[in-house]
Design a protein around this nucleic acid. Structure first.
Lengths: 102, 102
DNA sequence: TGACAATATGTCCGTTTGGACATATGATCT
DNA sequence: AGATCATATGTCCAAACGGACATATTGTCA
């Protein structure tokens, strides 16, 4: 689990930049992170495209601005579930989702 | 919505009052559930295709047989994150994922 | 039938997550 | 400069999640 490894490293004083570079990630871990990155990036893009603020999106989600910011930052403590729910709330279609992921 | 389907969902932890309440699911909630269903179904299909048992897949994931069973059952207490990690562990590609989702 | 493997179901409990809040930074005005 | 809006960052704690285990069910053999 990457966040655990990362936290271990950080606890030892390492400043972790690019995950796949410093951590010994399995291929499937790296692909999972990349997937998340693609989703969070698309979230920000889609939100801006619709001219919605983070506060507004947070309200739509029943969440808070700070969490939306973390979603878009690709924060490790944000799940794919939350990203997907946010994208769906913005009206992203299955087809668009597929394009984001592929 | 027939009551059979509803009871199945209830048994799996989905909070469903009655048929009308179920129909009150927002579009984005319904689409999220459908997405999860597609992933769990694909997980089972892919595992069987590779002739892997739930116990074996659990070992690959560092998880347990019971959780794998819940993943494939589309249990409400299973996240998309876990489903994705399992699919990636089975070697499913981005393209295949996109196809599953779309 | 009994025995065995595979899968399903239920519960427990430590860990992770997410909403909330405070606060900081940044950007754009007059 | 100060004011205002948008976004980022950090922390807290209740709720949700996940691994583990027990147990039940199902399927398939001899």
């Amino acid at each position: 689990m990457d966040s655990k490894k990362q936290k271990k490293l950080e606890a030892r004083g390492w400043v972790v930049g690019d995950a796949s570079e410093f951590l010994q990630l399995t291929d499937e871990e790296a692909r999972y992170i990349e997937l998340k990155r693609a989703l969070s990036e698309s979230l920000k893009t889609e939100r801006l495209k619709q001219q919605v603020t983070q506060v507004e999106l947070a309200k739509m989600l029943g969440s808070s601005q700070s969490r939306v910011a973390k979603m878009e930052a690709g924060d490790a403590a944000v799940t794919v579930d939350l990203l997907l729910k946010a994208l769906l709330t913005l009206g992203v279609t299955k087809k668009q989702l597929a394009k984001i992921i592929a």
